[in-house]
């Protein structure tokens, strides 16, 4: 290489000036050694054309780099979603006295919801559904953490209000001030006795065998909001033939293309009243298709999680 012509190009990739810097000694090209020469001997048209070609190459390289970075981030989000889905339960209890199932539908490949089942001594089950405020990766990180923390504290076989209290303490100490989660945690025994804590969560619903629907409303603050919260336990009796549905607000808040909410069109309560199936799987399917049919393919606005129980009663 004998010489270098340096043409200044601005951020918008336009030729800034055609006053070039020419050096006969490119190896010595540096800010201090550059001396400016007028363009007496260079064809300005050719120079402008060549510079234009160089700009296209530079721009393509920039787009390629940005596209590659976006593809890498997309891949990481996809993998994060896969990791999170692997954390969800896949095997559900199928016992003579009860059957449980659950499913999740993410809004953006990762979910801010979590749900799980904790097997407890004496044929009892801890059941929980949580919903972290916010969306995307930050909410999904906390949701996975929440699932692990509740699952671990749940195995200590503490009363539901104590589980909520410990989870609350943990979140208040470890997460940002404006981060919290709503939580429904329940313990169901083989005789159908249900002890629960509803911490700012949408009401779980009991669908009686008569078709009547009862709501287990929130009596508490969410977890992670106020460190001094005392949680209050609620109680209910699940009778043979009843269904219990614990879910997140992605169901009542699901919108159709006209912007109407599912809850305003009867929502889950009406769906359960009209349900005439006999199994927990058919109920879960009815909920899934009910929401899908209502939203008419409108873009999802929130994650959905459902944990459903069919209680058949103790064998005589």
């Amino acid at each position: 290489m004998q010489s270098v012509v340096a043409i200044p190009v601005n951020k918008l990739a336009r030729v800034e000036a055609l006053e070039a810097t020419i050096t006969e000694r490119p190896s010595e090209l540096s800010a201090s050694s550059i001396c400016r020469w007028p363009l007496f001997n260079l064809d300005r048209k050719v120079l402008r054309m060549r510079t234009g070609e160089a700009i296209v190459v530079i721009e393509n390289a920039r787009f390629f780099t940005a596209a590659r970075e976006k593809a890498r981030l997309d891949y990481e989000v996809e993998i994060t979603g896969q990791v999170q889905r692997r954390l969800q339960p896949t095997q559900f209890p199928r016992l003579p006295e009860l059957e449980i199932t659950g499913f999740a539908v993410e809004c953006h490949r990762v979910s801010g919801d979590c749900f799980d089942i904790v097997e407890l001594p004496g044929g009892r089950h801890g059941l929980f559904v949580g919903d972290v405020a916010g969306k995307g990766i930050p909410a999904s990180l906390l949701a996975s953490l929440l699932q692990g923390v509740i699952g671990t504290i749940g195995t200590l076989d503490l009363p539901p209000e104590e589980v909520a209290s410990r989870v609350n303490q943990y979140l208040c100490e470890r997460s940002a001030e404006d981060r919290y989660a709503t939580l429904f945690y329940a313990i169901l025994d083989s005789a159908g006795r249900l002890d629960y804590v509803n911490a700012g969560h949408v009401p779980a619903l009991i669908r009686r065998s008569s078709g009547e629907v009862e709501a287990l409303e929130s009596l508490n603050f969410p977890v992670g909001m106020f460190s001094d919260t005392q949680y209050t336990r609620g109680k209910a009796q699940i009778e043979p033939g009843d269904f219990l549905v614990i879910y997140t607000d992605g169901i009542p808040e699901a919108r159709n293309r006209r912007g109407e909410f599912f809850k305003e069109a009867g929502g889950l309560r009406q769906l359960l009243q009209e349900f005439n199936g006999q199994t927990v799987d058919s109920l879960a399917e009815a909920v899934r298709t009910g929401v899908q049919t209502f939203t008419e393919g409108a873009p999802k606005s929130d994650d959905i999680s459902v944990l459903a129980v069919h209680y058949r009663g103790q064998a005589c």
């Binding site: 405020a133 916010g134 001030e177 404006d178 981060r179 909001m225 106020f226």
Partner: peptide
């Protein structure tokens, strides 16, 4: 939304 509620609760704490 839920994030807004979080901000409101944090404002109350502050």
């Amino acid at each position: 939304d839920s994030a807004g509620v979080g901000t409101l609760a944090a404002s109350f704490n502050r």
